[in-house]
Design a protein around this nucleic acid. Structure first.
Lengths: 151, 151
DNA sequence: AGGCAGTAGTTCAGATTTGAACCAGCACTC
DNA sequence: GAGTGCTGGTTCAAATCTGAACTACTGCCT
């Protein structure tokens, strides 16, 4: 263990702010989605990602990486969404092992219904409270960390 | 529902970056703490908060708010930490209902042991990748959101 | 062809989280 | 000083997440 520099005032404040904020926002989002449509945040993210994907479909592993959950958690959530009729499973034509999660028409409609309320929260608490400059600075910083963490 | 403006490119990129980064970092931290000391991130946060508190002790509700978990989750985690001998429960002298979580000497030692490795991760992936300016901008932005979410 | 390491998903057990329901003690009113 | 509403914590059931097997298939290599 090499000796690590402790965090100074500013750094600690930054870390604490980041940590608390991300958790608080997560809670708020979860609450809003639950109330609006009985969805969890990961579920919403799955729908949103699929909607953006070509053919409204994506491989399980790819989706798991995008949403940042374990493969088993995704298996579970896709199961839930399938029960709700918002997603379907198809075996991948090019790879017999693979599974494609496909957004159904009902899934699209559900997303259209829920998205505005969700975006509203993201805006009200995060986006609209930042200046354009702050937004860009934050994005740049986040991207560096994200890239490092994705290897 | 008033009509909400959708997120434009920049805003969406910012949101996605923030979201992915916070989740990825959370995963990495969890992994490090688990490997280093069998602690979860919330558990570490509890220890760290208590160590900073006067008398190394805090009321349950106050602690739950600080760490950003539900009261029931905190009850559970304090139970775990108590089993491990890192924390003790005391009834609050001024309020018979209240419970004080107190960091034990073993808790202090555990924290001293684990903190460097944890800080190392926070530094390596987040803090040290930002310029001083970015750090301050991000903190300012996070604080606005945090404040709004804490009402 | 045959073998073999690696990848894709699922299953499983265990840990953790959450909100709702609950009990007890505080504080304020009449 | 009894009544009432509120706050602090715990308990509980249900949902979800994770990592560790496990199965099945792919892609190489010989």
């Amino acid at each position: 263990m090499t000796d690590t520099a402790w965090l100074n005032e500013t750094e600690m404040a930054a870390w604490r702010a980041f940590l608390s904020t991300s958790h608080l926002l997560e809670r708020r989002i979860e609450e809003q989605l639950k109330a609006a449509a009985g969805l969890t945040h990961p579920q919403y993210e799955v729908l949103a990602r699929l909607a953006d994907a070509p053919g409204r479909q994506m491989r399980m592993t790819e989706l798991a990486k995008g949403v940042v959950v374990s493969k088993s958690a995704l298996t579970y959530q896709i199961g839930q969404l399938e029960k709700a009729g918002l997603v379907e499973r198809t075996t991948c034509p090019s790879d017999e092992r693979g599974v494609l999660a496909v957004l159904t028409d009902a899934g699209v409609r559900c997303l259209q219904l829920v998205a505005p309320g969700h975006v509203e929260v993201v805006r009200a608490y995060l986006i609209d409270r930042m200046t354009r400059g702050e937004l860009e600075t934050m994005t740049a910083a986040m991207r560096k960390t994200e890239q490092a963490l994705r290897q």
